[in-house]
Write a protein that binds this DNA or RNA. Structure first.
Lengths: 328, 328
DNA sequence: TTGAAAGCGTTACCAC
DNA sequence: GTGGTAACGCTTTCAA
């Protein structure tokens, strides 16, 4: 038998005699033979691998993201090359370069990018699909969250629950998603006549920055409500408030953003803007698969977060009464 | 210039004239040239990639694990090929086969394995490092948690806090780690004269099974303490107890296992057995690097969890008094 | 110090 | 249906 025939058999071509094929398959099974992927990739120019480039890996947000991508990749028989902790876009660019010949496409999340990381849909020949906004790389297909709308709705919800002075714990300043959430908060405030002034505290998307924000707020006189730019900060916030003896939602209402799995399990459960993380992840991977297969893909898909009201933002009957009487 | 000279230059050999080298590097920089990794791998028989095979990807435990591995891999210039959701060992074996030619070594976690997945330190030529116990594959280097000791200590802590009737919410029955934790609980109980009888509820390591366990317990008359085989179940448990109006730790004490990051942020903070997840992950990766480099590696490294006492298991002064008078 | 050429293990094209 | 063989892009040995 020639290598050619073996190759054809193993790749499922039908121009192989049944007898030959059976014999080959039997022997391959006996030998536990697996084709060498590098050789195949060299010849085929396909690796059956998708690269995943994330800014970080801490917390349930990224965990859900990877889970969604992994599930979809397995369903399509694709491998996943993972690389993260690319806070700065420079590093992301380097990682992208290192991945170039190892993958057929890349899922890239780089909310801190400034200049264009990615050319029109690809970088140096590798197709790129963006997860979230990536400033300067608008040409690539992207799956983005409508952060503005989500933050706007959360803020409006807090206002309509009777809260007036609403503090916002912002995300990293160089993060586009974080900035959009801030913009949504501001817009909702300025649109509501009854709303108090803007009240912005710096944060960094991690639990600890939420903690610090709560400590600062508790020291400076509490607002009616605290809106954290993501759930992790809200959880840190909640913890620090508990330590200070501040009750949520009785003394202060609280809301987050993302609806990571844990948010429904904290005490009180967290009001938040639900982002279908795993679903976005799946679609991003399928988009990669489509691109590789040469199918047409949507250029941009926007996901609007869904307002999820839980106990952390509920207004207590008598607290509400007090507030309304206080403020007329 | 010949390809050979270019190759030597790019691989940092010193038998290249400085002038030639500079010229090559300059041109390579201009062209943004990156060697084709498949071609290189085909020639070198090295991929500079480590495979990571996990049973699941849900929750902070795995998220921390991947984070630890990723950090260490980046530090060593290695890539990560990730594959998960291999509940059943059959699938894990298939994934292992598919990875074979794509990686230099594999970090494998397969707590549900039965027969030997892995030969003496490798499977079909690929070195394997085990994360956690992997029944039947004891020949490979492994990084394991002393689940028995951890569970023993948690149980003893609960007993010494005055709790007598301690319920255990078990993990999946086919999971070795879960079984070891159960064994630790049992041993501690049988060793303490004052302890109540064994009280075991089935669980599955996920939040929801913790919820269900709590609901069952709340219906059947509460124990003094609930010890969940991992933190996720404890968090689900805590949530369901809150819904039922059961106070923790006043009405019932609670403890988990793993010390995932979120555990200190729930209300009340969770008593647990701290497993240095990210550190174990790092060491596992470094072990892979050592094996690839031909360095000697330890065959088995055991990590003893550290008891972390937080508010969820604290006994209230008067509750304690009541219990002692009732039983004493 | 450099270049020529033989692999590495596939796939794919072209004869037969 | 099948086999021979030229790529694929690199590393490495051997000569020069």
């Amino acid at each position: 038998m020639s290598v050619a025939t073996v190759s054809r058999t193993l790749n499922g071509f039908d121009n192989v005699a049944t007898a030959t094929r059976d014999r080959i398959l039997k022997i391959a099974g006996t030998l536990d033979y697996v084709p060498h992927s590098s050789a195949r990739a060299l010849s085929t120019r396909r690796t059956d691998t998708i690269g995943v480039l994330l800014p970080d890996l801490y917390g349930e947000f990224f965990s859900e993201l990877i889970r969604g991508i992994d599930l979809a990749a397995r369903a399509r028989g694709l491998h996943l090359l993972l690389s993260s902790s690319h806070g700065d876009p420079q590093e992301a660019a380097a990682a992208l370069r290192a991945m170039r010949s190892r993958v057929d496409a890349v899922i890239l999340m780089s909310p801190q990018a400034r200049k264009n990381l990615v050319g029109p849909g690809s970088v140096a020949g590798v197709p790129v699909v963006l997860l979230g906004s990536c400033p300067g790389s608008e040409a690539a297909p992207s799956f983005v969250i409508d952060n503005y709308a989500g933050a706007f709705e959360i803020t409006r919800h807090l206002l309509s629950a009777g809260h007036r002075r609403i503090a916002f714990v912002a995300g990293p300043q160089d993060n586009v998603e974080a900035r959009e959430r801030l913009r949504g908060y501001r817009a909702a405030l300025s649109q509501a006549a009854a709303a108090g002034a803007e009240w912005i505290i710096e944060g960094g998307f991690c639990e600890d920055s939420g903690r610090r924000a709560a400590q600062a707020l508790a020291g400076a006189g509490l607002p009616d409500a605290i809106f954290c730019a993501n759930d992790m900060m809200a959880i840190g916030c909640l913890d620090a408030l508990r330590e200070k003896g501040v009750r949520v939602p009785e003394d202060v209402a609280l809301a987050g953003f993302d609806d990571i799995p844990i948010s429904r399990y904290v005490n009180p459960p967290l009001t938040t803007a639900a982002v279908p993380i795993a679903d976005i992840a799946r679609q991003a991977l399928e988009c990669c698969a489509d691109i590789i297969a040469g199918r047409a893909v949507a250029n941009r898909r926007v996901f609007k977060p869904e307002l999820v009201i839980r106990a952390s933002s509920m207004m207590h009957r008598d607290t509400a009464a007090n507030q309304f009487s206080e403020r007329g």
